[in-house]
């Protein structure tokens, strides 16, 4: 239908008006889809079970020979329930969190493409940029929910099993419960922000393929390979820029005077990954042919 050879020229209707709040509507629909999806709910429940399981194990064994032992912050949990939040995040960071977040963000676009729903969204029409941003928001909210699922059950289980008291910091100083709670909240926020780079990576992979499992696996592999490279002293030159290198820097909040330099550096690395892979995802998705 070229304009030159149309028989009766169609009446040119006024350009359809863009309604206010339209983007919020799109994002709400996306969140309903992401958070209503049974698989994602199961992932969140699975993550929430980690602190519960850890708490129960530590509670049962606390009078045994292994009391007060364990890597990271596990040894401190029995003394103060607040540390169950920290210990659980510490346990979930290397694998479980990246896995769950990789699944949700890798599925974002590729899932729609494989189901064929992507073409119907695009002919609605929804702008590709707008769709990508709403998908990114959905994936980021899921990542936040994943971190919160661990943190909140950790808090509740920790308080119920071990009680909450004044917090002894890494330096040995003791601070009040209120201060301790604030510090734990800061840890949770830092861990949540640490996931943003991974979400962007997942989103980018998701725009490359119509096979969601491929995008999910590739995303998780990036997190794991980053962790492995971080272990090689020969590569210390690039350690600072690795996706996972600063993830455990949340411990900074457990020092008497957290070093803002360390924290800012960790967040800056995430921002860089977010920017690079967000741009790549944008470049790819706004120009790709949708033929599924």
């Amino acid at each position: 239908m070229s304009p030159a050879d149309s028989h009766a020229p169609l009446p040119a209707p006024a350009e359809p008006a863009r309604r206010r709040g339209a983007f919020a509507r799109t994002v709400r629909a996306e969140l309903r889809l992401v958070l209503g999806r049974r698989r994602n709910v199961v992932l969140l429940i699975g993550l929430a079970l980690v602190p519960l399981l850890l708490g129960v194990v530590l509670y049962v064994t606390q009078s045994g020979a292994f009391a007060g032992q364990g890597p990271g912050f596990i040894g401190r949990v029995t003394g103060n329930g607040l540390f169950l939040v920290i210990a659980s995040l510490f346990l979930c960071l290397p694998f479980l969190l990246p896995l769950c977040i990789g699944i949700a963000s890798g599925d974002a676009i590729a899932g729609e493409a494989s189901a064929g729903t992507l073409r119907y969204l695009l002919v609605v029409p929804v702008g590709r940029g707008r769709l990508l941003v709403s998908k990114a928001i959905g994936a980021l909210v899921f990542a936040a929910c994943a971190v919160l699922a661990v943190a909140l059950t950790g808090l509740v289980a920790g308080a119920a099993l071990f009680g909450v008291g004044d917090v002894t910091l890494l330096s040995g100083t003791t601070v009040s419960v209120g201060d301790g709670l604030l510090r734990v909240a800061a840890v949770v926020v830092y861990v949540g922000l640490s996931m943003t780079g991974l979400v962007a990576v997942g989103l980018f992979f998701s725009t490359l393929t119509e096979v969601p499992v491929g995008a999910m696996a590739a995303t998780v592999v990036v997190a794991i390979v980053s962790g492995v490279l971080d272990q090689l002293p020969q590569l210390s030159a690039i350690h600072g820029g690795l996706l996972t290198h600063h993830w455990l820097d949340f411990a900074e909040f457990l020092r008497l005077e957290p070093d803002p330099g360390v924290l800012v550096q960790g967040l800056a690395v995430q921002a860089a990954w977010l920017l690079v892979f967000g741009s790549l995802a944008w470049a790819r998705f706004t120009t790709a042919d949708v033929s599924s």
Partner: peptide, 28 residues
């Protein structure tokens, strides 16, 4: 286009609602 495709876990109606939510010009 090329056969129908919708979100399998949403109801037929919810699928229509979802599509409409992506339309910036439609009236909710």
């Amino acid at each position: 286009v090329e056969g129908p495709a919708f979100q399998p876990y949403l109801s037929g109606r919810a699928n229509l609602v979802r599509l409409d939510a992506h339309d910036v010009t439609s009236d909710p």
